[in-house]
């Protein structure tokens, strides 16, 4: 089969001679001065109505208790509580008081803050399946009470499937917030029954 050889559409230009770039990266002040821009610091404030389910949950935390709700149709017990079952689309049926122990479903070891500043001692966010809830129903919190700060040290102590227990603020300092639990710490020794 005949073939035609493709011709280059344009002759390749010669590479320009190397000239090192002058100057330095713009800093914040120079950037503002050089580029047309306006600044606006919004003052946006909200106060969200927590609603029936979360309000009772927060009241429970103040008393050092973790409440959940149960749906009789799907049989799930979940926390944080919700007024209605999102799978069965019906109101939840009953409130249950749960233990303050659970199992780590998944976790991460974060060496930056929420606004991306470096952290020497990492935060360990985790999804914790509270004992008494249905599997895969998690509770987002932090893992604490762990020695060391390197990945190796932490991974030796924290793993998926690890049993944990809530460490609470002293009762006088609780305010009806998720932060009334300081963190969940590994349960190192289980008392044998």
């Amino acid at each position: 089969m005949a073939r035609t050889r493709a011709k280059p559409a344009i002759a390749r230009a010669q590479a320009p001679p190397y000239v090192p770039l002058r100057g330095h990266p713009l800093n914040e002040e120079e950037f503002r001065g050089q580029v047309g821009s306006t600044a606006w610091a919004p003052r946006l404030e909200y106060a969200w109505d927590a609603g029936v389910a979360i309000s009772r949950f927060l009241d429970g935390l103040r008393q050092g208790k973790i409440y959940g709700v149960r749906c009789r149709r799907c049989g799930r017990t979940v926390t944080p509580p919700r007024a209605f079952c999102e799978l069965d689309f019906k109101p939840m049926d009953e409130w249950v008081e749960l233990l303050d122990t659970g199992t780590i479903n998944t976790f991460s070891i974060c060496y930056v803050t929420w606004d991306m500043k470096p952290l020497r001692v990492p935060q360990i966010p985790a999804v914790i399946e509270i004992d008494g809830t249905s599997p895969r129903v998690g509770f987002l919190h932090l893992v604490g009470g762990v020695r060391g700060r390197t990945v190796t040290e932490i991974r030796r102590q924290v793993r998926a499937g690890l049993p944990v227990r809530a460490v609470w603020k002293p009762p006088a300092k609780r305010e009806g917030a998720i932060t009334d639990i300081l963190y969940f710490e590994p349960v190192r020794k289980r008392t044998k029954k």
Binding site: W48, D49, A50, G51, V52, A53, I54, R82, A83, F84, F89
Partner: peptide, 26 residues
């Protein structure tokens, strides 16, 4: 004001009413 309920709870009531009105389920 609707301090007694969250927006999710208001939405759930409205959706329940709408589906019931239409004679359908979610």
């Amino acid at each position: 004001l609707s301090v007694d309920r969250s927006y999710r709870e208001l939405g759930f009531e409205s959706a329940t009413r709408a589906y019931g009105d239409a004679g359908v389920t979610h």
